[in-house]
């Protein structure tokens, strides 16, 4: 008897139409500027906030000022990293996680983060609040630019994060903080 795999593949082969060429992706970038201002505007419209900094050392004070209630803060950017080897479930009580982002996209506020920057995959989701550090030199205009820069995968997991976790499932009322981080702050170096 033919396996389901072979059955499906042979049916697909028999029924698929003649192949057409892939379209060119040139000319899809539009006129979106790749600037910090453009990025900030979109990020704020998603409920995120942005701080310009000149040194990562400014971050702890800014966090203490804007999030005074934080008990457990984890920084993947520096400092104590024993949590990397713990059971990921133990990150459940993390109030604030600070991670680096590789690229930021002005058209939609998204930041590309891989497991290089978040060595425990669940960290940017399970923390109550999230801070991402980006370089203003690495702000791109569109998603086309982002995939061009990212290239092919070197890591097992990567994610575009655009703003805090949210839902509008109850009568289309927007609520920030569904299952992931309740707020997102981006630090631009």
């Amino acid at each position: 008897m033919m396996s389901s795999r072979d059955k499906i593949l042979s049916a697909v082969k028999m029924n698929q139409p003649e192949q057409v060429a892939l379209p060119s992706l040139d000319g899809l970038r539009g006129a979106m500027p790749a600037t910090l201002d453009a990025y900030r505007k979109v990020l704020e419209s998603l409920g995120g906030s942005l701080f310009e900094i000149s040194d990562e050392k400014e971050i702890p004070a800014l966090l203490a000022q804007h999030y005074p209630e934080m008990k457990r803060v984890i920084a993947a950017t520096s400092g104590e990293r024993s949590w990397i080897h713990e059971d990921p479930h133990m990150l459940e009580d993390v109030d604030m996680a600070v991670i680096r982002g590789q690229w930021a996209v002005a058209e939609n506020g998204a930041v590309w983060v891989t497991e290089e920057e978040a060595p425990v995959r669940v960290l940017p989701f399970i923390c109550q609040h999230l801070a991402i550090v980006i370089s203003r030199e690495r702000i791109l205009a569109t998603m086309h630019d982002a995939y061009e820069k990212i290239g092919l995968p070197l890591t097992g997991f990567g994610v575009f994060i655009a703003g805090p976790s949210k839902t509008a499932d109850i009568e289309q009322s927007l609520v920030l903080g569904a299952h992931g981080a309740k707020s997102l702050v981006v630090f631009a170096l």
Partner: peptide
């Protein structure tokens, strides 16, 4: 993915992209 992620959330709910696009 650049093409589809630009279209999906804008068409669905009028957001520029979903909060998370996980690979």
């Amino acid at each position: 993915l650049g093409v589809f992620l630009r279209l999906l959330a804008r068409s669905a709910t009028g957001q520029p992209i979903t909060t998370y696009s996980s690979h």
